[in-house]
């Protein structure tokens, strides 16, 4: 802990696919975000949290899936994720998998939106028998998106809400996420290695406008030959 260092502000985005109010998924994700904020404060930093409830975006998400047309709320969510230093992503488990709303949302995103960004994954379910959904299913989705998933994933079945061990896991995951955000890993990847990842043109606003004119395809476009 370095108290003399300049205070830093991190942006944390919480995405949840819980649909009821109150939602246990939202509760789990919010507790995690709250813990990240407290830990950051203790270390002399600040966290600003942006909350995205996918329920409100449900129709825009399905529209985007079938037509690639992003509505205003979805665009706002994408912009928030683009600026995020870290992410808490939570979903209820339905039929032995993450909610379709949750996976659909992440499937509409550009492949490069979350590159190197740290993420804590969280899921809730009606039975402990769904516990491995987080690590066996959700982790691979975020692997595809090339984000950095914190070692500790969170899962809460009904019995966990009265078990102090859940709080311990939340603490662990929150510290992992905070340390990953503090490390500046995502920013450094962006600054030093961004072009080595595959991007769609203009996927990321101005950044992806830096076109590599030395690529094989660009040389072919300018009358050269294919290699």
């Amino acid at each position: 802990m370095n108290l003399t260092a300049e205070k830093r502000t991190f942006t944390l985005v919480v995405v949840t696919a819980g649909t009821s109010e109150p939602s246990s998924t939202k509760l789990l994700a919010q507790r995690t975000a709250q813990r990240v904020t407290e830990l950051a404060q203790r270390r002399g930093n600040e966290v600003q949290t942006h909350f995205i409830g996918l329920r409100e975006l449900a129709t825009e998400i399905t529209t985007a899936l079938v037509t690639s047309l992003a509505g205003p709320k979805l665009q706002e969510a994408v912009a928030a994720l683009g600026k995020a230093d870290g992410l808490v992503a939570g979903t209820p488990v339905y039929k032995a998998g993450a909610s379709g709303l949750f996976t659909s949302f992440f499937q509409t995103l550009e492949d490069d939106l979350l590159i190197a960004k740290p993420v804590v994954l969280a899921a809730t379910a009606g039975t402990a028998r769904h516990a491995l959904v987080v690590d066996e299913q959700m982790r691979s989705l975020f692997g595809y998106l090339r984000s950095v998933v914190a070692p500790t994933s969170l899962f809460a079945a009904p019995e966990d809400w009265s078990d102090p061990a859940l709080n311990k896991r939340i603490d662990r995951a929150a510290l992992e996420l905070l340390l990953l955000m503090e490390s500046g890993f995502a920013e450094q990847i962006r600054n030093e290695s961004w072009q080595s990842y595959r991007h769609e043109f203009a996927s990321d606003g101005e950044t992806a406008l830096d076109v590599d004119f030395g690529s094989d395809l660009m040389r072919l476009a300018a009358g050269g030959s294919a290699t």
């Binding site: 043109f201 076109v211 004119f213 660009m218 476009a221 300018a222 009358g223």
Partner: peptide, 13 residues
């Protein structure tokens, strides 16, 4: 609709 290489080829010629 999204390919800078195609725009580059159009521009080149």
């Amino acid at each position: 609709i999204r390919t800078p290489e195609i725009a580059e080829q159009a521009a080149y010629y």
